[in-house]
Every structure is written in structure tokens, then in C-alpha cells.
Write a protein that binds this DNA or RNA. Structure first.
Length: 474
RNA sequence: GGCUGAGUAGCAAAAUGGUUAUGCAGCGGCCUGCAAAGCCGUCUACACCGGUUCGAUUCCGGUCUCAGCCUCCA
């Protein structure tokens, strides 16, 4: 199993610290707004990683935190005139709904910053005792970056460059502009927790150090998150954790690439983001997941309708191949399974893994054409099984192909119903029957008219060799 | 300016020192009443310039372009 390690800038053979066991920590959401497709990518990517480790038999502990206190949350709650806990709870619930829609399995532990205050305070105290942190002139507690020699090892930066490139906004409370805050004093009216340094709240970076070591130990296997967290967030985490414990913090750092819109990073500040629930009005949730899996997790991923439509077309091809095939517990096609594993074990190469699914679909179509029942069963079960490892292809083919996207705005959870609008389905069936009759009397004009009318409504008819007709949505 | 990373055919996206990626789209054929789906065949590549090599899209150096980080960000 090879994984690209940001720390060493190369693919390395992955060795768990303890045979058969893996601890992984992923930086999750700051919950003050809905998840956008960029957040969805992190969720789907690391869900896929977690699924694969489990499939390989590792005992995995997957931790993904929730940042439920910070300046943006406080500001947003003030704007809304609501308590910040009401705000965060609402968006935590929304996030869980989005995850479920995308077939992202819940992490094993989902610690929240506000519920980890004691361990955060303990870690800051240790840092102060070790001389790595100090109380600034404004009462905030800062990390003394210069005292941590390896600072910059993850992001390839060095302190001299950082100091040279300082922004004009110098904070006079700090001893050094590169220092960062560990504990922030509360202003009047702000939420706070008691601490040895006064009432306040944790800085952003310290929560992840505290929560990860708390859940996984001082030294664990994998730490993940978006590329943009590399610096300063993860760099600071290393400084805090290794500074406090004196141990190596993390063996492997994994960072996923961004989702882009028009060649630009999708982000809140640029305002060019699409929320998961927005996109779900137009596409099935599995299409979004498939879209994400179609590129390697470290590559940029361009968001566009064209790309989503592409993903949909690809998924449709796979489901079409599975159509009408009974999935039972036949043996797996070993050759394809092996190729699939090879792809996944090369730094989670999901585009190649998906290409193997397409190869299987072609095999399946050929077997169907030849009427080779044995082969059909074997290839179909393999396709469905390998798809399942990626968190796709778990619907019934008819469910997927006939699912209607209502666009009503409600969140679409998994398990779509084919006949959410039963009357539509009844109508389609009636029209198909009328067309069968027209065909029997060789009234091609009427038959074509019926087909065209349904097509206009997004329903595609397909005549089968045995004289029956099936349909699917466009 | 400093530090990362990337540039592959119409679009998207992988691998690879010499041999088919894959999906969508196109073209020809089979199938079909005609379609759709499917199958068979087929056309568009490796940013540019040098170097290493018997041979480079793949390794090395340089150029150009793009993106990201250096401020909150997944």
C-alpha cells in the first residue's frame, strides 16, 4: 500500500505503527454554513480511504473533528441574533444530512472543540511550562514559533522567509509576528470558558492538536485535510503537539486538492461555491460522489455542469450493464479484483479503480450478448462488489435509472423511490402499452410520436429484442 | 518576492523509458421498423527548448503558462 506523504513529498510504502491497526485524523468543518462541494470532496475522499482500510482488514479508528467555536461562528450568530450553539447545531445536523446523502459513513469519533476544552487547556499549560508559549500583552496566549526548531518542515517554509514576507498587520501583543494564538481572551458578550489565563476560547490550531492526541494518542498514523490546511494549520499542529509531547506527532500527512470553479479555488471568501444541497437539486447524490472519485484526490477537480453530466453518463453506463441481472453470491472475478486493489493501493487511485469498473461493464455487456449465464453472474457480482468498496452502485439499477430529480429543494437522501410520483410512472406504463399496440399494427408514426413525447418529458424508451419496452430517465 | 504543485488528444482523466488506459463526444459497421442501449472497428495526445539514452510523454536542466499557500478557508 503506497500513500503520498506531504511531509516527504513522495509516495511511501505505508506501515501502520501497530500491525493491523490504523489511527487517522481528518480536519473537519467549521460549522457556520452549509457544506459546499469542496467540503464534500474531503468527506468523500477520506470516506473512501477509510472504507478501503476497513476492507483490507485494518482495525481503523477514524476521527474527524467539528470546529464549533471560532470568530466566524460568533460573527454569524451575532448577525442572526441567535445563540452560537443554536447556529452550530443547525449546521452540524445539515452536515450529517449531506454526508448521508453522499454515502459518507460517519467517522468513529467526531469530537467537538467546545467539548474538548479541558484537554486544550492542559496542552497549553504544558506548552507554557516547556517555555514554548507565553501570555501576550493583551492576555492572549501565544505559541513561540521560534522556539520550535523544525517549524516549516511540512510546508517547506522556513522562518526567515516567513518573517521577511510578513504582512503589514503587525499584532503588538505578540513577541514575534509569526507567533500564533493558543488561547484568545473573550470580549464582552462573547462566549467563553474559564482558564488559568482568564475567560476566553481556544485558538483554531490547538483544538486539533488536543482532539487528535486525545482520541488517537500522541503519535498516530495518518492526518488528513484539504491542501489549504497544510500551512499554517497543520504546521502549527505539529509545533503544538510535538512541542507538548516531545514525540513524533503523525507519520503520514495526506492532503486533498481543491475543487475549482472556472480555474479558481472554490471557497467561501470568493463566493464561487455550490452547496451540496444546491447541487442535489439537479443531480443524484451518487453522481456527485462519482464525480469526485473520477479524479485523483490530490489533483484539482473542476466543477462544472459538463463534468457532472459526464459523471452521470458514466454511472448510467455502469447501471445499464447491471440492468436485469440478478445479483447473487457468485464467486468474484479475481483478475479484476486484483487490478482494482492494485489501483487503490497506489495512493488511492480511484480514477483507475473506476476504469476497471468500466472494463467490467463491457465484459458484462458481452456476456449478456452471448447469453453466458455463468459469466454474467460472476462479472456482475464483481462489478457491484467493487463499486460498493468505493461507495457507489448500491442502488438497484432500475432505481437509479428511473429516479426522478424533483428539484423541489428538499434534501435527497439515499434510497430514492422509483415512483416517488406514482402517477407519472403509471402514465409512462400506459404510454408504453399504447406504443406496443401501435407497433403491433405497424403504426410506426404513432409509435414514434409516443416515444418522442415521452422523450420531451425526459423519459427514454428502449425496445428489447423480446418485444417488451423498458424506460429510464434522461 | 518565497514555498508547493500542475501542464496529456474535442472534453474529462490515469499509467508508463520502447507495447490498448478509461469515460463522454465524433466517424464507420452490426443490431433495430426507425431509434435507444449494446457490440465491433476507427480518428484527434503527451506546453516549449535543450540534455541523458539504442530509444523519452515518461528521467535531468531551463523557458513559458496555470493553480495553491505565505490572511480565514476543505
Amino acid at each position: 500500500m503506497k500513500i503520498y506523504n506531504t511531509l516527504t513529498r513522495k509516495k511511501e510504502e505505508f506501515q501502520p505503527r501497530e500491525a493491523g491497526k490504523i489511527g487517522i485524523y481528518v480536519c473537519g468543518m467549521t460549522v457556520y454554513d452549509y457544506c459546499h462541494i469542496g467540503h464534500a470532496r474531503v468527506m468523500v475522499v477520506f470516506d473512501t480511504v477509510a472504507r478501503y482500510f476497513r476492507y483490507k482488514g485494518y482495525k481503523l479508528t477514524y476521527v474527524r473533528n467539528i470546529t464549533d467555536i471560532d470568530d466566524k461562528i460568533i460573527n454569524r450568530a451575532n448577525e442572526n441574533g441567535e445563540d452560537f450553539t443554536a447556529l452550530t447545531q443547525r449546521f452540524i445536523d445539515a452536515m450529517h444530512e449531506d454526508e448521508q446523502a453522499l454515502s459518507v459513513l460517519p467517522p468513529d469519533v467526531e469530537p467537538r472543540a467546545t467539548q474538548s476544552i479541558p484537554s486544550i487547556i492542559a496542552m497549553i499549560e504544558t506548552l507554557i511550562v516547556k517555555g514554548l508559549a507565553y501570555v501576550g500583552t493583551n492576555g492572549d496566549v501565544f505559541y513561540s514559533v521560534n522556539k520550535f526548531k523544525p517549524y516549516g518542515k511540512l510546508s517547506g517554509k522556513n522562518l526567515a522567509d516567513l518573517q521577511a514576507g510578513e504582512r503589514v498587520n503587525v499584532d503588538f501583543a505578540k513577541q514575534d509576528p509569526v507567533d500564533f494564538v493558543l488561547w484568545k481572551m473573550a470580549k464582552p458578550g462573547e462566549p467563553y470558558w474559564e482558564s488559568p489565563w482568564g475567560n476566553g476560547r481556544p485558538g483554531w490550531h490547538i483544538e486539533c492538536s488536543a482532539m487528535s492526541t486525545c482520541c488517537l494518542g500522541n503519535h498516530f498514523d495518518i492526518h488528513g485535510g484539504g491542501m489549504d490546511l497544510q500551512f499554517p494549520h497543520h504546521e502549527n499542529e505539529i509545533a503544538q503537539s510535538e512541542g507538548a509531547t516531545g514525540e513524533t506527532f503523525v507519520n503520514v500527512w495526506m492532503h486533498n486538492g481543491f475543487v475549482r470553479v472556472d480555474n479558481e479555488k472554490m471557497s467561501k471568501s470568493l463566493g464561487n461555491f455550490f452547496t451540496v444541497r444546491e447541487v442535489l437539486k439537479q443531480y443524484q447524490p451518487e453522481v456527485i460522489r462519482f464525480f469526485i472519485l473520477q479524479s485523483h484526490y490530490r489533483s484539482p477537480l473542476n466543477y462544472s455542469d459538463e463534468q457532472l453530466n459526464d459523471a452521470k453518463a458514466g454511472l448510467t453506463r455502469l447501471y445499464t450493464a447491471l440492468r436485469g441481472v440478478e445479483i447473487n453470491d457468485a464467486a468474484l472475478e479475481d483478475e479484476y479484483k486484483k487490478r482494482f486493489e492494485q489501483a487503490m493501493e497506489d495512493d488511492f487511485n480511484t480514477p483507475v479503480a473506476l476504469s476497471i469498473l468500466f472494463d467490467l461493464a463491457k465484459e458484462l455487456n458481452i456476456a449478456k450478448k452471448e447469453g453466458n449465464q455463468e459469466r454474467i453472474k460472476m462479472v456482475a457480482i464483481t462489478l457491484k462488489y467493487l463499486g460498493g468498496l468505493l461507495g457507489v452502485l448500491f442502488y438497484g439499477p432500475e432505481d437509479f435509472l428511473k429516479q426522478e430529480i424533483t428539484g423541489g429543494g428538499e434534501l435527497r437522501l439515499p434510497l430514492p423511490s422509483v415512483s416517488g410520483d406514482g402517477t407519472a410512472v403509471t402514465f409512462i406504463d400506459k404510454q408504453i402499452q399504447a406504443r406496443v399496440d401501435a407497433k403491433k399494427s405497424k403504426n410506426w408514426a404513432l409509435a414514434d410520436q409516443i416515444r418522442d413525447e415521452l422523450k420531451q418529458q425526459g423519459v427514454i424508451l428502449e425496445d428489447k429484442p423480446d418485444g417488451t419496452t423498458t424506460w429510464r430517465r434522461e
